[in-house]
Design a protein around this nucleic acid. Sequence first.
DNA 1: CACCGTCTGTGACCGGCGATACAGAGCGGG
DNA 2: CCCGCTCTGTATCGCCGGTCACAGACGGTG
Lengths: 235, 235
Amino acid sequence: MVDGQPAAPESKNEAIAASLAKSALFAPLTPARRQKLVGEGSVLNLNAQTILFEKGAPGDALYVLIEGEVEVCVSTEDGRSVRMAALGPGAVIGEMAVLDGGARSADCTATRRSRLLRISRDAALAALEAEPKALLALLAEMSRRLRAADGALEDAALLDLGGRLARLLLAEAGNGDLVALAQGEMARRIGASREKVNRKLQSWKASDWIGIGKSGVRLLRKDKLAGLIEAKKGV
Amino acid sequence: MVDGQPAAPESKNEAIAASLAKSALFAPLTPARRQKLVGEGSVLNLNAQTILFEKGAPGDALYVLIEGEVEVCVSTEDGRSVRMAALGPGAVIGEMAVLDGGARSADCTATRRSRLLRISRDAALAALEAEPKALLALLAEMSRRLRAADGALEDAALLDLGGRLARLLLAEAGNGDLVALAQGEMARRIGASREKVNRKLQSWKASDWIGIGKSGVRLLRKDKLAGLIEAKKGV
DNA sequence: CACCGTCTGTGACCGGCGATACAGAGCGGG
DNA sequence: CCCGCTCTGTATCGCCGGTCACAGACGGTG
């Protein structure tokens, strides 16, 4: 129904099921069961900056991210907010509220154009009940998330603004060396003010650790940036 | 072997199994299976401040806390450390490393005299494989932990020293109104300096929100303390 | 072209909190 | 009984980082 795809439903389902095979949660399932789950669920397309659900809403479904990126955060009335996680393709979203039947515990927003598979609470629980392997996979996924949360907690407590920014740049650059994020966005992600991010970047630029062009920030001395992180964590 | 208990092993096992029935993980098991797991595992008694395992150690077993309290933290060489969680009776400890076979991701220490059941990785995995209900329970436990981690992340980002201290006092007091912790310990738990904690307490005492005696801190105006937390999180 | 919104770059200011440095107060042990 | 320990209570200083207040730069649009 989106992108004007005229493809027949079955072949579309098959394509989705195939792309979900890479998801840790779906990988251990038989292809047949994957197809069944996809058939029971519904596909959802979100534009960038679209809200998937908000804190407090009833948790009546779980989502699997097919492509795109979704971020989990909580925000206060006075505008501040904390980013708790950013999830990529294959990730399971909103499983906590589904598992205990409670309300959603955070806001969830697509940061890019994303496609998700929505699975109702009942269908999800039934599938998990029937497939212990999927349960184990979900457990592994939760374990990863917990690890990530612990890491974030550690960073927040041990790293100063420079360290957190360096980590963001390195993570965002991946194997390349270019980061195309607005400074305000970087600030938001590491929980700092835009101005301070700018100053830090300027100081690094002055040391020739990075270059700043209109295409974004170019990392010239990844080693130095990585060093900042190690330094703060006690050698 | 501790406390000089002369009881026969079977009755001891039964007692332990009974106390574990309250644990979310063990509750869904049949009494027989509980007994079996207890039999396969070994009981461990730790004094306060004893290390259960350290970050980097191989994760060859998982533990269930029978009684006492255990805290999970990571520390840097230069002495600073971050507390990531405090676990009470019934909690599962070290399951992450067991699930993915990796190394322990944090240090783990008993903060009080504690008793734990140690279950080897193999036995744990076998039991989980055989009992989907236990898997589901473990999932719920992980979900709780993730929620707690997210909460901590939120607190760290949104609350100032006063807010975090207020939260600690309220949590520690429970339904009572007395908190018997040294100020240095409070500081360590909320990641602040001992001096600042003292100042905050003094200022609250001056407002008659709390009383400070040698038996500890007495909370007189819980409402005011709770208000501090709400205020920071934007009403 | 003139206008406007978004992004960048800087300066000034100020509050919070960690670090340092002591001074007393209990308290358990030699 | 006195020494030394841990816990408490204060003062002073300096850094880090958030806020405010602008000033350009760029790109799209009427």
